[in-house]
């Protein structure tokens, strides 16, 4: 059954420019891990930002888990969408430690539930021993895992990942890809994953789209 449905999405940064995403439609099933590969500037990060509600497209509809996020008559604000996102630079808050970063999105839960969920997340990403550390005291791979735990903690309907490997050393990638796939599987989350590296997508995703700059954000099969 279709879990994520995106129809006729068009977006441009400037009215005078040609659309960076032009009439794009695709669908995802629940629990599916889908990859989008494309060169920089092809609009793949923009697509994630639109789904998260950080950019407003010209037209189109976005529906996730039978909840309408946007169409011609409605617009759900980012904070109400229940969408998780791992940013390219991870965006871990430098003034909060690992536990507080992960707990940041669980402010609506009861204290006891929050504590339990935090423990689950720390175990999921194997960072239990690092709960009191600050982001600058972690390696790139550890930061990425904390960012994932933080995004997953509020139980989002979908996880969006924007180039999560771009900040990592090449020789670490193989291991980290494996870890990431394990985490995603264990969490059973629906995930849309963006990368410019075909190998990332092949290692992690079950299905992939390719997006090119001159296709106006349209997908082609890879």
């Amino acid at each position: 059954m279709t879990y994520v449905s995106i129809k006729n999405l068009t977006f441009r940064y400037n009215k005078r420019q040609t659309p960076i995403i032009d009439n794009l439609s695709f669908a995802m099933n629940k629990g599916e891990i889908v990859g989008i590969v494309g060169a920089s500037g092809s609009g793949k990060s923009t697509l994630l930002r639109i789904i998260a509600g950080l950019e407003q497209p010209e037209q189109g509809t976005i529906e996730v888990d039978q909840k309408m996020m946007m169409d011609d008559t409605c617009w759900v604000e980012t904070e109400q969408r229940g969408v998780g996102m791992v940013f390219q630079d991870y965006a871990l808050f430098p003034h909060l430690n690992v536990a507080d970063n992960i707990g940041f999105g669980m402010h609506k839960l009861k204290r006891s539930e929050r504590k339990q969920r935090l423990q689950e997340m720390l175990e999921l990403v194997q960072m239990t021993d690092y709960a009191k550390r600050y982001p600058h005291e972690l390696s790139g791979g550890q930061q990425q895992r904390v960012a994932m735990a933080r995004a997953l903690a509020p139980k989002p309907s979908i996880l969006l990942m924007d180039e999560p490997f771009s900040n990592l050393d090449a020789h670490l990638k193989a291991n980290i890809r494996k870890e990431l796939l394990q985490i995603l599987r264990r969490a059973g989350i629906t995930c849309l994953f963006v990368s410019h590296d075909q190998a990332d997508i092949e290692a992690i995703c079950e299905r992939e789209f390719c997006i090119t700059a001159n296709s106006g954000g349209n997908f082609c099969s890879c």
């Binding site: 604000e77 980012t78 904070e79 996102m85 940013f87 390219q88 630079d89 940041f104 999105g105 402010h107």
Partner: peptide, 27 residues
Amino acid sequence: IPRSYSEAARTLGHGPASTFFKIELPL
């Protein structure tokens, strides 16, 4: 302050005011 900090806070369910007081103001 990178924009992504504020955006991350919003994807985690915090509105503009809460993002301001909990993330931007301390930084």
